[in-house]
Nucleic acid binder design. Structure first.
Length: 550
RNA sequence: GACCUCGUAGCUCAGCUGGUAGAGCAUCUGACUUUUAAUCAGGGGGUCGCGGGUUCGAAUCCCGCCGAGGUCACCA
């Protein structure tokens, strides 16, 4: 097929590639081999990523960064000098008013994202709001990026010569693009190849009259002068885009141009770009034929999902979740690990439901293996890239952070005491880190799981109880009125209350269960709940006594 | 139509350079004064979608087929 294949490290070729220099069998090693093969002995290697801040930068976009980050770390580990370039494609046009934004923003459609105001008025522009959120999340994750702001790059005139170059070769650019278009597609869009070749101007011009890109190119002088008509105001002017930098290359050429301008050696992209004949193929051809440079080594990656949420995420649909939001419930190292452990072409899910327990547990097991020294080189590398250093601490299992956290009202000292009394191993720093995440997971994302004490006594339920059951509750009250009741004492008492010498063992168990149910109903309106002894020990005693007053 | 991914225990999935099938949940048995949504120990459960091929050996590589999903528009 295309000559690109030599540089294309898509899944199958990755899996078939010979063992990398690193010898651990990881995909990242094989891709690094490819980079060093295509671009040997570079003084500086550039791994790139880029995102258009057209809405919330979500955790799917984040895979772009993580994929490039993995390569950068791998090349670094091999003694190469590396920079991790991140381009904010903020000079792209504002296409669509996303859900949740004032519909009147439709008047900004066609303007660059940095030319649209922030709907909330807190940031200098629409784009900046999303950039700031993402940049903060990257800081929290400990990922350092070399940011490029494309509005600044374009409007500084930096790309003027390249734009001229493209315009001078516009027939060739048209030709290359036509190669990737199908006849069927052309018919559907009513595209006539001849007309396309003749009239194709591969530039976007942001009109000085309207600010939007709704313009018609009238002529080009072969240098840096362009005449356009603003379709919104019907005004015509000629500009020299070297002095009046309001011209931008469209996406397809923009990518190829920057590969050359920034000397990019590796850049991943989502599978929407990676499809055969898709935008990456077109750009690779453009890079080679128009910019006389091999395309960077490419790695396509699958989408990331959320457990219990299907369909593609997008900012305009208003269902996007940012990496920063994920940090509410995931530790930074864990989040990075989840991205790095999978080969890029494998999709995976993040979770806001109980699936997160498993992710934390698996992560804890890996880290424990690292500490014991019995993890594989591949595991060690992934953990190292995720920022995990072998520490001598026993993490608090996330499930327990949720369970113990809520019965201790998220009080760290009480939780530590409880953990100790209950023989649950956990180190204080780990508990301190995870408690807020567990709290957010429960209260913000899974409120239906919350076990809350009733505010008022459960009179309806109590009314249906007979004398004997009431007597049991009264006994419990008496015990709780003594301050000294410890977990162990409570444990014993709670089981002793319903006991009766006349009952068989089996009957005793049934009686105990019925009693527990009564207590749970009176306290939390449920048939079951956290282990009673611990629960009674941890909750506000006076309040419980009031709930148990029949 | 082109391309990609997935199809492994009841459920959710690990199994990445080929070497005697794994985890969690669920289930069963037992222990802890306990059939309580903070435990522990152990057991059962899979012809790894189907059919070929390569190999001493394949869930793992290759080919074909079936099934599910995805991407091909400037939306990762």
């Amino acid at each position: 097929m295309s000559q690109d294949q030599a540089f294309d490290v898509s899944t199958s070729s990755v899996l078939n590639a010979p063992q990398g220099e690193a010898g651990d069998g990881l995909w990242v090693g094989r891709v690094a081999d490819k980079v060093l093969e295509v671009f040997p002995d570079q003084p500086l290697y550039t791994c790139a990523a880029g995102i258009s801040p057209s809405g919330i930068v979500h955790f799917g976009n984040f895979r772009d960064v993580m994929t490039s980050y993995a390569l950068a770390r791998e090349l670094e580990a091999r003694g190469k000098k590396v920079r991790l370039l991140f381009s904010w494609d903020e000079y792209d046009r504002f296409r669509k008013v996303p859900a949740g934004v004032d519909p009147s923003f439709s008047r900004y459609i066609g303007m660059p994202l940095t030319g649209v105001p922030d709907p909330e008025g807190t940031y200098p522009s629409y784009a900046r709001r999303f950039e700031v959120e993402f940049e903060e999340a990257m800081r929290a994750l400990g990922i350092t990026l070399d940011y490029r702001y494309q509005t600044q790059e374009y409007t500084s005139g930096r790309y003027a010569d390249q734009i001229a170059h493209v315009l001078q070769h516009r027939e060739q650019a048209a030709e290359i693009q036509l190669r990737f278009k199908t006849e069927k597609g052309n018919q559907e869009k009513g595209l006539d190849p001849d007309t396309f070749r003749r009239t194709y101007f591969p530039v976007t011009v942001y009109s000085r009259f309207s600010g939007a890109d709704k313009v018609e190119i009238l002529s080009y002088d072969g240098g840096t002068k362009l005449t356009y008509r603003c379709l919104l105001t019907d005004k015509v002017e000629q500009i020299d885009f070297k002095e009046t930098p309001i011209v931008k290359l469209p996406w397809k050429l923009d990518w190829a141009m920057r590969w050359r301008e920034e000397q990019v050696h590796f850049e991943p992209a989502g599978k929407d770009h990676g499809t055969a004949g898709g935008s990456h193929d077109v750009n690779s051809a453009l890079a080679r034929e128009l910019f006389d440079r091999p395309a960077p080594v490419f790695q396509c990656y699958e989408f990331v999902g959320i457990q219990g949420m299907n369909g593609k995420m997008s900012g305009s649909k208003g269902n996007a979740i940012s990496p920063g939001t994920l940090l509410d419930i995931y530790e930074p190292e864990l989040l990075k690990w989840l991205y790095l452990r999978r080969v890029p072409m494998q999709s995976f899910n993040l979770a806001f439901d109980t699936e997160i327990y498993r992710q934390y547990d698996e992560f804890d097991r890996e880290v424990a293996g690292l500490r014991r020294g019995d993890s594989s080189p591949a595991q060690q590398k992934i953990l190292a890239f995720s920022g995990v250093a072998p520490k001598d601490e026993t993490p608090l299992a996330f499930k327990q952070a949720v369970a113990l956290g809520q019965i201790t009202q998220w009080q760290e000292d009480k939780l530590s005491a409880l953990a100790e009394k209950s023989g649950i191993p956990c180190s204080a720093p780990s508990a301190a880190r995870r408690l807020p995440k567990a709290k957010a997971w429960l209260t913000t994302y899974n409120p239906e799981e919350i076990i809350a004490l009733r505010t008022e006594p459960h009179l309806d339920y109590a009314g249906a109880m007979d004398e004997k059951r009431r007597a049991h509750i009264a006994k419990l009250r008496a015990i709780l009125e003594e301050d000294s009741a410890s977990i162990a004492a409570l444990e014993e008492q709670v089981y002793a209350i319903p006991k009766d010498p006349s009952l068989s063992e089996k009957e005793t168990k049934l009686a105990q269960r019925a009693f527990f149910k009564d207590v749970y109903q009176l306290l939390i309106t449920r048939d079951a709940g956290p282990r009673l002894s611990t629960f009674l020990w941890a909750v506000d005693r006076a309040h419980v006594l009031r709930l148990l007053t029949l």
